[in-house]
Design a protein around this nucleic acid. Structure first.
Length: 103
DNA sequence: AAACTGACTGTTA
DNA sequence: GTAACAGCCAGTT
């Protein structure tokens, strides 16, 4: 496809199965830029207000939410609501909930 | 157009 | 085992 990077990220985001999470690296890889993990975060941070994309399904490679506290709480709530569980360290078990790009 | 920034990641110290 | 450093690359100013 010829879409620009953010567009690809949006489409990948929309493709994350409910109850799964993707790391920035995974999304970057699927967006054909394996080293642009950072940029994925940059895009999510500046997501358009009218976007209804499941941005909350994106965490860092440790399965940990990587943002300031206010949004952190909001994201965690969303994930819990989708059946994603956090361990005592507030980390998601990526071996269980991590999305490999194939459901 | 050039420079700065960052919701990451992998490697070294 | 934790802490710091450096690449990375696309968005923003």
């Amino acid at each position: 496809m010829q879409d620009s990077f953010p567009t690809r990220v949006y489409q990948i985001l929309a493709a994350i199965p409910k109850g799964k999470v993707a790391t920035y690296g995974t999304i970057a890889r699927l967006a054909s830029s394996p080293r642009a993990a950072r940029q994925v975060g940059g895009i999510l941070k500046r997501l358009p207000k009218d976007s209804t994309l499941p941005w909350h399904r994106v965490v860092n490679r440790f399965g940990k939410i990587s943002m300031e506290e206010s949004n952190y709480i909001r994201q965690k709530e969303c994930l819990l609501k989708e059946g994603i569980l956090f361990d005592e360290n507030d980390c998601i078990d990526l071996t269980r909930f991590g999305w490999a790009g194939d459901d």
